[in-house]
């Protein structure tokens, strides 16, 4: 199979790229939701991210990508525990996948052929320590989305079915993409995604020309094109690794906490999920830029993607959610 299109070669779409990078710096931010026009590189960006992410160390053959021998679940039945370096998993969740395929279920093959009750891990196990990608997330059945968001938040998959009782680690970043023409995601599910970005077709000719040129070069002169962008991808990868190291040292000042809380109050968001995500995103952004403190600039930069899907619907205000967050910022952070 062809190597995916390089992340650094994606033209424009800065907000989407930044959101994905921030989750790579700090996976606890929560998922990313990318909604927008068709053919704007949403899936391309996710596939590119898979190739970009720093590799992980895992026990060879472990169904949940455990890092150490102690983390390997008993039901995996491993006999050797060799540690290997593997790419960060980015797992596709196909639409229409049933609950059994997502959470894992009774291994029918073994039940039929050997008469034993064994657990066959599902997609959540494979996505542990990585990413789970759902294209057209708005077409996924609600109960599956709900389940995914629950597991993503708790970091643990609990399977109680067919006489099985299994729990295993399932920490992953959920990335969903979709086209609003085919229906919105319910607000109850929306605000549980950490970040949300709106993706639009580029409006100006020059950007569009560059998109065509790069894609054409990728199709025709694949090896040379990949070589050309390899160094840029490596630079991003290094910055992600540096950023991860810098996270711990970034303590928010009182002033930043006030800004964050003020924004969320003005927004009228329920609960504290908005505040926490905004703070984490601002911290990850500061770490990504290798800055030594979190400031108002960082909060400003990430506020639209952290808050736009938490706005209440206002029937009297049909301006875009990004604009509304911008307006709020101008009022609160004046």
């Amino acid at each position: 199979m062809k190597t995916p299109f390089p992340f650094s070669a994606i033209v424009g779409q800065e907000e989407m790229k930044l959101a994905m990078i921030l989750t790579a710096v700090d996976p606890s931010i929560g998922g990313v939701l990318a909604f927008g026009d068709r053919g704007t590189g949403k899936s391309t960006a996710v596939r590119a991210l898979a190739a970009l992410l720093p590799p992980i160390t895992k026990v060879a053959g472990c169904p949940v990508n455990a890092e150490t021998r102690a983390d390997v679940p008993d039901w995996a039945g491993l006999e050797t525990f060799e540690e290997i370096t593997a790419p960060t998993p980015v797992i596709d969740l196909p639409l229409g996948a049933g609950e059994d395929r997502v959470t894992g279920a009774l291994d029918i093959e073994k039940a039929l052929t050997q008469g034993i009750r064994a657990f066959e891990p599902g997609l959540l196990a494979r996505a542990n320590r990585g990413y789970l990608y759902i294209d057209e997330v708005n077409l996924l059945e609600d109960h599956i989305v709900d389940l995914l968001l629950d597991v993503a938040q708790s970091g643990e998959n609990v399977v109680e079915r067919e006489g099985l009782s299994i729990r295993h680690a399932a920490r992953f970043v959920l990335v969903g993409s979709g086209n609003p023409e085919e229906g919105e995601l319910r607000p109850q599910l929306l605000d549980r995604f950490g970040l949300s970005v709106e993706v639009e077709s580029p409006r100006d000719i020059d950007t569009r020309v560059e998109v065509i040129r790069r894609r054409d070069a990728y199709d025709r002169d694949h090896a040379a094109f990949m070589l050309r962008w390899q160094a840029e991808d490596a630079a991003i990868r290094e910055r992600i690794v540096t950023g991860r190291g810098g996270l711990a040292g970034l303590e928010p000042s009182d002033r930043v906490l006030h800004d964050v809380a003020g924004l969320c109050i003005a927004l009228g968001s329920d609960g504290l999920r908005g505040e926490l995500t905004l703070l984490k995103a601002a911290r990850a952004y500061a770490a990504w830029r290798d800055d030594t403190a979190i400031t108002r600039t960082h909060v400003r930069a990430v506020a639209p993607m952290a808050l736009r899907h938490r706005l209440r619907r206002d029937p009297l205000d049909d301006s875009g959610s990004g604009t509304r967050v911008q307006r709020l910022m101008d009022e609160v952070l004046a």
Binding site: D37, R38, G39, T40, I205, R208, V209, I212
Partner: peptide, 16 residues
């Protein structure tokens, strides 16, 4: 790209 813009064709797939 200009042709697509003139005819209101959105997305990157069409010109490709």
């Amino acid at each position: 790209a200009e042709l697509c813009a003139a005819f209101g064709v959105a997305g990157a797939r069409a010109p490709l």
